[in-house]
């Protein structure tokens, strides 16, 4: 049977002899390091962007819409003109765009689980966190792109950051670190929620009060007391303040340390929860 089909269509049928020799010819290389395994997964994420470029729509179109919408919608009302508002809102809208995009990590993971790729990775003898870290590393590329698009739009409509190029770069770096921490929250949701739909719904519900109940768009001093109290404890407010300070060239306060501490805390708490759930997902 096999000999016959091999003779008839050599290029398309599996070749039993070749499979047998492929089994014996291989020598198992030493295990890859944690870093190298994570980078391989990051490479996978980039390949996916190459094959499915549509998935960049969220990081390109979304920031453009957000920036234009909020700048022109609120600009006049809040500061009298777009020109005076842009310095305030540009860093904020960048934070908002990027943090909004982080949410998609959860549905990416959910899709991997549903399609069966995830179990393949979990069955490999590699450092267990590497598949997830690789996923977040790939996402970091998307976040960077989102930040770049937002910056470009802001520059086009008149943003001239006082902090200069380096200041903007430093702000983006802080933002990416925080986004990496927040990514673990979404990965955890991706593991415990059963469908991509519920993942998106829950992520949105969590993200909305954190993003909008912050100092991204308006100065909290105009808000009622209870809302100010929330805005003050909201880690995104601290992050926005720190990013703003870098980009606007003003002195960076304790918010930088707080943002980094929050990022570390998110990794510690949700990273542990995720890895605990990763051992035995439903």
């Amino acid at each position: 049977m096999s000999a016959q089909s091999t003779a008839e269509e050599a290029p398309r049928a599996p070749q039993v002899d070749a499979i047998a020799s492929a089994l014996t010819s291989v020598e198992r290389p030493p295990r890859p390091s944690a870093l190298s395994a994570s980078m391989s997964f990051g490479w996978r994420a980039l390949l996916k962007i190459k094959h499915v470029p549509e998935q960049l729509a969220d990081v390109t179109l979304f920031p453009v819409i957000m920036t234009l919408l909020f700048t022109y919608l609120f600009g006049g009302a809040i500061s009298g003109s777009v020109e005076s508002y842009i310095a305030y809102i540009a860093p904020g809208v960048m934070v908002q765009s990027v943090l909004f995009i982080t949410m998609y990590s959860a549905s990416t993971l959910r899709t991997d689980i549903d399609r069966g790729v995830f179990d393949r990775f979990r069955s490999l003898p590699i450092w267990r966190a590497s598949a997830l870290i690789g996923m977040l590393l790939g996402d970091a590329v998307r976040y960077t792109l989102g930040a770049a698009v937002t910056a470009a739009v802001c520059l086009a409509i008149g943003w001239r950051p006082e902090g200069g190029f380096l200041g903007v770069l430093a702000g983006v770096a802080v933002l990416l670190i925080f986004a990496f921490g927040l990514g673990w929250v979404w990965l955890f949701f991706g593991l415990i929620l059963r469908t991509p739909g519920s993942v998106t719904a829950v992520s949105t519900i969590v993200l909305m009060p954190v993003l909008f109940g912050s100092n991204i768009f308006v100065d909290p001093s105009t808000m009622p007391g209870w809302l100010q109290a929330w805005v003050d404890v909201n880690p995104v407010s601290g992050l926005v303040t720190a990013v703003r300070a870098f980009m606007n060239g003003t002195p960076v306060g304790p918010e930088l340390g707080m943002s980094l501490a929050w990022s570390a805390g998110l990794v510690a708490v949700f990273g542990s929860l995720t890895m605990w759930k990763y051992r035995d997902p439903r």
Binding site: R28, P29, P30, R31, W43, R44, L47, R120, F121
Partner: peptide, 16 residues
């Protein structure tokens, strides 16, 4: 989403 070769290369890399 990946090609056949990319998939096998990925697994091979993950094995070291």
């Amino acid at each position: 989403d990946l090609t056949g070769r990319e998939n096998l290369r990925l697994i091979a890399k993950l094995y070291g």
